[in-house]
Design a protein around this nucleic acid. Structure first.
Lengths: 116, 116
DNA sequence: ATTATTATGTAGAATCACTACAGAATGATC
DNA sequence: GATCATTCTGTAGTGATTCTACATAATAAT
């Protein structure tokens, strides 16, 4: 069942969303997904089948690292934090997104060339 | 060889770019790709291996239809135009993109909530 | 005639988000 | 203290779509 407002993520955007979320400080998978959902006014929902593989991917690439701790709710949880390489990657993906959305806007709205 | 400014397309955006291009009138594959590239200031480049499968996909779904004609440069070319269903699909994908880029902006830039 | 340009196409790899399922540990309720 | 709900992590397999790399054809230009 898909809620009325929900949109599917575009491929290639999840890493960026996760890295950006971790810029606020260490967090665990479940909380990261909730943060993305809440901050986007329920529009973006990250499924667990996307979330955990993405976290493992980011960890394997050295952009985040992990340690088991206890969450606010008293459950064991794997806390992730940005590495220095991860901060660089975040900056890179942010500028890539900015460029891409500018380019998309130019094609979708060619009259008002440089609005954004 | 990849040019300095070029960005890879995000999966799911090509259909929208093609449909939007055809809103200006019938056009053929080669010209559609050039239009997207030019309008985006060379940032978006559509490869032929993405372009033609996408056109066939859109045609199979009834969003565009085709006829062989002669191009400006005097070569045979398959001209595509939007069908009524294609116009609906374009509107749908445009609003989906607007929503998604708004949602992304909210996560990437949570301080200035409703700027765009 | 030969070469460049315009134009369409396919095969196969790679990526990545999804659905659907499974499991474990703690908190809450009766 | 047994049962249920909640929190949290995870995997297998599917599907969609863009990419690289290659192949082909027809007309224009030299």
């Amino acid at each position: 069942m898909i809620s009325k407002t929900r949109i599917e993520l575009l491929q290639g955007t999840l890493d960026l969303l996760i890295l950006r979320t971790l810029q606020f400080g260490p967090s665990h998978g479940h909380a990261i997904a909730k943060h993305i959902q809440t901050t986007s006014a329920e529009m973006l929902q990250v499924e667990t089948g996307s979330l955990y593989p993405a976290l493992h991917r980011l960890e394997a690439q050295g952009w985040i690292d992990a340690s088991w701790e206890i969450s606010d709710k008293g459950k064991r949880a794997k806390y992730y934090r940005l590495t220095p390489a991860g901060k660089k990657q975040l900056a890179l993906e942010q500028s890539r997104w900015a460029k891409l959305s500018r380019a998309m806007a130019m094609v979708l709205n060619p009259t008002q060339q440089e609005s954004q």
